[in-house]
Amino acid sequence: MTAVVEVAGLSKHYGGERGSRVHAVTDAGFALEENRIHGLLGRNGAGKTTLMQLLTGQEFASSGEIRVFGQNPVENAKVLDRVCFIKESQRYPDDFRVKHVLATAPRFFADWDEDFADELVERFRVPVGRRMKKLSRGQLSAVGVIVGLASRAPLTFFDEPYLGLDAVARRLFYDTLLADFAEHPRTVVLSTHLIDEVSNLLEHVLVIDEGRIIIDADADELRGSAVDVVGPRGAVEAFTSDREVLHRTGLGGLASATVAGLDEAGRTAARDAGLELAAVSLQQLVIRTTIGESVDPTKGTPE
């Protein structure tokens, strides 16, 4: 496996004064492997977009190292020619129509596939003659999705590409992405908070919260890694006393605790203690690790 992106000790803050300084990304370190679909998950304002702007050379890092295809991405055509960044807030020249966007794209993307783009325009029913600023939110997103897919860039970022897209168009996006990825493998980063919709597409997952990477793991490893243990409060507390608990809720004498990394022996012990086990989806896992309360504050915080 080769890493397409390598990041170490990466931080980005805005504002000079200590008090007013905003820490968008703090001490991030991770690698993105070639030809995988990665999920970049996190709440609004967690730092997802800033992180992608840093990786695509659209922002300068305050400190730390970024290597994309082994090089620094900032103002580096050798890197940026192979990168496509589809962002939710993409701006276009005022007089641009859809067909102008599609005609300009090959200049930015060496692997642009015009036939594929035309096919996608049909499938997403985008009016090619219309001015970009007259498009609906969904149509604007569809243009982004089309450019992102037809660019076939070796490293493609989709930053919440689905705003305004209806359920049919989102499904179409996911299905097309999978099919095209299978035929033309490339490295994809999908930033989203519609986690349930995409969790089966992802091979690797990064979760960012308040600027810090708090989960960096294979999707299949995360699936089933946490379980809800439910039962009488006393029994749940006794069972979880020496285990890592991500989240707790309770109702009267009943309690529920989300336990991380429960192995087969642990599961049997829970059942023997009369406790019920319930699966935790990737979305629930992310919600419970980023909700803030009842999370061990020493976890994921470097000294």
Partner: peptide, 13 residues
């Protein structure tokens, strides 16, 4: 790839 497309999952999986 057929399995991945049909079941809507990642081909590597």
């Amino acid at each position: 790839n057929e399995l991945a497309a049909y079941l809507r999952i990642n081909p590597a999986t």
